[in-house]
Amino acid sequence: MKARSILLVEDNHQDEMLILRVLKKINLANVVDVARDGQQAVDYLFGEGEFAHRAGADLPAAVLLDIGLPRLSGLEVLARVRAHPRTRVLPVVILTSSDEEKDRLKSYQSGANSFVRKPLDFAEFAETVARLGVYWLATNEPPPAR
């Protein structure tokens, strides 16, 4: 069975680089796909637009979703994911630098499985990202891929 991937939705290139670096260190980088805005994320998940070739492909084991994204915000992406029968139970982890209480509340209300704040300090950040990767790819048993 092919290893399930993780979809990282992140518009900040530096954050993306740092996250991938951390995941690479724990040998998980090769199963991470990256979408750089909300629309790409939706296209990826539903096999549409530039990701038409993914139509019918396996769903990722989890989505790491930022909130502040171009085109479609993280919360809008979350709403679409939850609205679609195929992705209704897809694990979605909000990974954001927002610490607004209302963002957290809104995320859970929209059906996020987890809400993680990006720590400012890089060491903490690296540790958090590594733990997320290990948990959602190795520890957690995802729902069926299709």
Binding site: N12, Q14, D15, L18, R21, S97, S98, K118, L120, D121, F122, A123, F125, A126
Partner: peptide, 17 residues
């Protein structure tokens, strides 16, 4: 203030790299 956090994390992070 909020937006300064991402570049700051990058500066600190790449220094760490």
């Amino acid at each position: 203030t909020h937006n300064l956090r991402a570049p700051l994390r990058a500066i600190g992070g790449f220094a760490q790299v």
